[in-house]
Design a protein around this nucleic acid. Structure first.
Lengths: 227, 227
DNA sequence: ACCTGAACACCGTTCAAGT
DNA sequence: ACCTGAACACCGTTCAAGT
């Protein structure tokens, strides 16, 4: 009985919600949405699939928690000296960049009920809308429109990344789309063909911001009508 | 040998891509996204699951085809006498209504690559943007922003419907959300609390259109700067 | 209280075999 | 050419049994 077999070194810390969620994020980032499996996750945590259920109610909650974790690190403090316009741009860009780094977050945000992570962003957009002196009756519409736009771009970006072969890069992909557009029927797709070239020198971030600016212009114009 | 058993009457028409897709739409509408199963679909078509694969390459294609089928019926002809603003509103409302009638279409549109059904809508929005006299360099941004906004609302609507218990209705749901918002921490969620009441007398369609108008205002304001 | 891992019910997809 | 349905590989989730 002298030589008791030592425990495998692997089993360092006990399981915890925190460890599970961070392992899930890792899995999602490296193997993609389809790679997050209770079996794969259990293996990575050196345990059985059932163990995870003691800390997390199921896959839905796990995905929500992973999304929360990523969005939380992205949403930093407000720069108090920024103008409302720039604060909103910074907020929107934060979400945009988080999704570019973790495409599965885009899928998740557009599908999850508007609760949890996006509510915090809605609040901060709303405060800046107030700072823009938007009349109270129009504040909700303004903040909602900005949110919907951000989520729309988020979803499309995530979809694009999902379509993308892991090998090919962004510009190659845009080039392929542009070529496909240029080969469309000239009668049915006159407009699409006319803007196809623009795709080739396309900057996702800049385009996203231009859309934000468009909405902000609309919000401001409402207060001081042109005509 | 006189009494040969007759074939069951069920087996009317032969299988076809068309019949498969329309059965899939029916299943999605009645039982929801999780109800669309190759086994369930096969049973409804009085055949085995394998038969479907002869007409359709897999589930991804099946979902895309089902989405195409629904969107195609929604996109009617342009009313040629409408102003560009109204034409864009009508276009956007068409997508909005299709998703309200078939929530799974919202999920699908926001996740599918921007190809197929939305490309047609993009084209038609683009033509109206041209009709608005938007300078060529700004047309792509304008049409893209409108599309992203529409897809964003589509996704949120689909997510809300998915969250909704099949029993409860829309106003009950909004009331519950409003109550939840009003119970948030006043320091952290001052803005969200201040707009919660507005949710109670909230009209999804009107709010959606208000967002479209905001973007259109932004697009127009760019041409005749206020200052 | 927390972990283990076999077992259950259910997927999408394939494929040899039929007509 | 088109259909059949058993079989395969793989899920999420449960649960009796362990510590």
């Amino acid at each position: 009985m002298a030589t008791r077999t030592r425990r495998p070194e692997r089993r360092q810390e006990p399981l915890s919600r925190e460890r599970i969620v961070s392992a899930a994020v890792e899995l999602l980032d490296t193997v993609g949405e389809s790679g997050l499996t209770f079996r794969a996750l259990a293996e990575r945590l050196a345990t059985g699939p059932g163990a995870i259920y003691w800390h997390v109610s199921g896959k839905t909650e796990l995905l929500a928690a992973a999304t929360d974790a990523v969005v939380a690190t992205t949403v930093t403090e407000d720069e108090t000296d920024a103008t409302p316009w720039n604060a909103i741009r910074a907020l929107a860009l934060g979400v945009f960049d988080a999704i570019e780094a973790h495409p599965w977050v885009g899928t998740q945000l557009t599908q999850a009920p508007p609760q949890s992570p996006m509510l915090h962003i809605f609040e901060r957009i709303g405060r800046q809308v107030q700072a823009l002196q938007v009349p109270e009756a129009a504040q909700f519409t303004a903040a909602s429109a900005l949110m919907s736009y951000i989520l729309g771009v988020a979803g499309q970006n995530a979809a694009n990344t999902r379509t993308l072969q892991p090998g090919t890069d962004r510009t190659e992909f845009l080039d392929a789309v542009a070529t496909a557009w240029e080969e469309l029927d000239p009668d049915q797709y006159a407009f699409t063909r006319s803007v196809a070239g623009r795709l080739r020198k396309h900057d996702d971030r800049a385009e996203f911001l231009a859309g934000i600016d468009l909405i902000l212009t609309g919000i401001s114009a409402r207060q001081q009508p042109t005509a």
